[in-house]
Amino acid sequence: MSVQWDEAEAREIVRRHEGREGRLLPILHDVQASFGCIPDPAIPFLAQAMNVTRAEVHGVVSFYHDFRDRPAGRHVLKICRAEACQAMEGEGLARRLLDRLGLEWGGTTPDGRVTVEPVYCLGLCASAPAAMLDGEPMARLDDGSIGEIVSEVSR
């Protein structure tokens, strides 16, 4: 994903949401979809475009877990750490997977292949432990799944 700031593209995103009530979150989602993160120049740009202070935009960006200040790896693996997955020993499984990839929570492999993030519930709680790879749900994970996930993100 590109991280190159492109003001014309950002202007086009803002234009798309013209007239919507409370449009900052939808705009930020689109900015992140285009640039892979919320790049630094986006803050003053959006502040000006929406006639609010930079502090207000920064406050919103930094409040929500989803918004990144730098792009993630090519693959994003979100592993559930909430209670239903804990009850199915999801923590141990997550640890073994992180070790296999040589990562800590929130980390990205040096080659930029994959970022592993915690998530608190994917709504797959009757089929725990669960995870989501690039937006695709995975459940009833076991040690066999670790190998599958590792080979999937190696592509």
């Binding site: 089929s127 669960a130 749900p137 459940a139």
Partner: peptide, 8 residues
């Protein structure tokens, strides 16, 4: 097509 069915 439920996510929990797709997940398995």
């Amino acid at each position: 097509r439920d996510a929990a069915a797709r997940a398995v």
